[in-house]
Structure formats: structure tokens, C-alpha cells
Simulated assay, not measured.
Amino acid sequence: MQENNIKDTYDSVPYTSNPFAISSIFRLEAIAKMSGFEPAPHEKCCVLELGCSFGGNLMMSALRCPDSEFIGIDLSSEQIERGSKIVEQMGIKNLKLIQGDISQIATGGGAVEKPTKSLIISSFMAFIAGCLILSKMLFLKWAKTTLARTD
């Protein structure tokens, strides 16, 4: 019952879906390499976005990396339907949008097979990363002005 209420809320309140530079597969690949990991190359990888809205964050990467696979999952059937129409109109063949509850997919109840080398992103993770960067910038600005004072 509660799950339907949440889904109905997402369906009735449309939200935008834009590309986020912070979750760009090119950026994430570079960060992973600099951190000592061996990520799948962006030219041939699988990207799974949780809470993808209508897939706007994935569309740009899917167009730029035609040999990679992109999967977006969102609870809202309205958003997935909207995004699927856009994907079809744009002729994007390597992007699949799925309506589903990510908690069910995470427990094995979904229709997504777990790829061996994949990158999982979410708008929420991009938001948190943005908040962390902003917090760091504000702290450094505060520290610079506060620690430079001589009282």
C-alpha cells in the first residue's frame, strides 16, 4: 500500500532530468584510475543509474559511447514512459529505461542482470558529492579568512 503511494507521488509530480557533470562516466573513470582502480573503459562499459527520472543524465553518455550499455531505473512509470519516447525519437540503441523499485532490484527481485564490470550512479549520489564539494569549498574559505586573522 505504501509503495503505491510513493509511486503515485512520483508519477503525479514530474521532475527534470539533466546531465550532471559530476556523474559523467569520463570523470568517474578518471577518478577511479587516479585512485588506483581499474575501471571498465568508458568506451565499453555498463552504467546503471538508480533513480534516473526520464534518463536525461544517461542520454548524453549513451550518445557519446555507442559501444557501452546504459540502464536507467526509476519508480515512476510516467518518467520511464516519457524517457523511452525520447530515447526512441533520438535513435539511442544502447540505453534501456526500466520502471521498477530499486529496493527490489537490489535484493534480486528485478529484471536487471548484474554485469561483471559496471558503474552504478545515482542522482542522489551526485547530489551528495556536490554537497561535499560545496562544504569543502566553504570550509576552506572560512579557514582562510578565520585563520588569517590576527586578533
Rank of each mutant, 00 (worst) to 15 (best):
G72D: 13
G91L: 02
V13L: 04
G83D: 09
R27T: 06
A143N: 13
D151N: 15
E78H: 10
P14Q: 08
M137H: 12
A148C: 08
C131I: 01
Q104L: 14
I105W: 10
I6E: 13
I121F: 10
A106H: 06
K33L: 11
T116K: 11
F124N: 09
E49C: 09
I86V: 15
K117Y: 04
K33F: 04
F70I: 02
C131H: 06
M1Q: 09
A30C: 04
M59Q: 11
D8C: 02
K96V: 09
G83Y: 07
E29T: 05
I105M: 11
I128A: 12
R64K: 15
E78I: 14
L147K: 06
A129V: 08
S12L: 01
M59T: 02
G56S: 07
Q99Y: 01
K117C: 01
G110Y: 04
I25A: 07
F70A: 08
K136H: 04
A126Y: 03
C131D: 14
A143L: 10
S76E: 07
E29I: 03
L58C: 08
G83H: 11
L140D: 15
M1L: 13
L95Y: 05
G108N: 13
C45D: 03
V87E: 11
S135M: 02
Q79D: 07
I98E: 06
K7E: 15
F70G: 06
R82S: 09
A106T: 08
G56I: 00
S122Q: 06
S68L: 01
L50F: 07
K144G: 08
D101I: 00
G130E: 12
